[in-house]
Amino acid sequence: MSVAGWVLAVIAAIAVGLAKGGLSMVAVLSVPLLSLVMSPVQAAGILLPVYIVSDIGGLIAYWRHADWRVLKMLWPGALLGVWIGWLTASLVPVEGVELIVGLIGFAFALTALLRRAPEGPPRPGRWSAASFWGGIAGYTSFVSHSGAAPYQIYVQPLRLAPQVYAGTVTVFFAVINAVKLIPYAALGQLSPGNLGIAAMLTPVALAAVWAGVRLVKIMPPRAFYLFITWALLLVSIKLIWDGGSGLLAD
């Protein structure tokens, strides 16, 4: 890779680590950043091992805080979404998925920023919504590691405490990323070249995990949710631009 490529790869690894440290939406930047210097497919293949090793750091910090009822409701749909992503990998352009994810995330984030602060108790979890958004999260996570946006659409209205939110999102995607290893290997995305680059990026991501854990501990709940909502909005705009531009170019 060029010098610019390595700089972007390091920034992408930092984004992955911060996400596994609890700032979940930051990870959505990783594949779009790396896609500036390589194909989205190669970018996803390089970053999957970085995600998985960073997941270990996140699990050490947060697994005790996870809301297992939320996870049990989300996982069935998410695993189905990964399977559908594998079956349709050669049929659906990545740009189309990026555009859809971007539009959904943009609408959700803009609504969250414009509406008044919610009153009353948090919204209860529902199997139907969990299955739907879990499936979207699993599918988009398989295609471009961008499952955090649909995941957040379901989980944020539950208004979990910051550490519970961080624990739940960490455990959720740790399982999904581990499952993705099989189809990624079958599709040839875990090549020796990609694994070599991933090995060099992993220490950077692990250092960023620690930084993310520290930030979550000191951020007030309102600031935490405001941060991830703005991150979702900005990343969604980026995904809309990339996806729309890619489809128009085709």
Rank of each mutant, 00 (worst) to 15 (best):
S245Y: 03
G244Q: 00
A166D: 06
G196E: 14
G57M: 07
A249Y: 08
W241A: 07
P203A: 11
G81E: 02
M219E: 14
Y139S: 11
I52L: 15
G138R: 04
G120F: 05
M219S: 14
A4V: 15
W133S: 12
Y165W: 14
V10W: 01
R69E: 13
G125M: 14
G120R: 03
P220E: 07
A112H: 01
L103T: 11
A231N: 06
L232C: 12
P40D: 10
L36C: 10
V50P: 08
A109G: 05
G167L: 07
G138A: 10
G134P: 15
L201P: 05
V31C: 05
E95S: 11
W68E: 07
G196T: 10
I153S: 07
N194V: 02
I46Y: 00
A249V: 04
V94G: 01
W241H: 01
A223P: 12
I56A: 15
G5V: 07
I52S: 12
E119P: 01
V101W: 00
R159G: 12
L74C: 09
P76Y: 05
Y51R: 09
V82Y: 08
P32L: 04
S146N: 15
I104W: 08
V37I: 05
W83G: 03
G81L: 03
I136R: 14
W68F: 13
A185M: 09
I237M: 05
L160R: 12
P157A: 03
A148L: 14
F106Y: 09
I84N: 00
V235T: 14
F224Q: 13
A231H: 10
G212I: 05
G17D: 05
L187Q: 06
A12Q: 08
P76Q: 12
L234P: 00
A130M: 09
S191H: 08
Y165Q: 15
F173L: 10
Q163F: 00
I104L: 10
I197W: 07
G17I: 01
V16P: 10
F142S: 04
G135A: 09
S54P: 06
G243R: 00
G193K: 08
A178G: 14
Y151T: 12
G188D: 01
V37M: 03
I14T: 12
A249T: 06
A231D: 12
A211E: 15
F132D: 03
H65Y: 13
G134T: 14
V94S: 08
T229I: 07
N194K: 03
Q152G: 15
V155Y: 09
W75H: 09
G125Q: 11
R126D: 15
F142Q: 05
S236H: 00
A231Y: 07
A9E: 13
V213T: 13
P40W: 02
S24C: 07
V97T: 04
Y139N: 05
L206F: 13
V26G: 01
M25F: 07
L80P: 02
N177Q: 14
L201G: 03
F172D: 06
L181F: 11
L232A: 13
V209D: 10
R115S: 00
G196N: 12
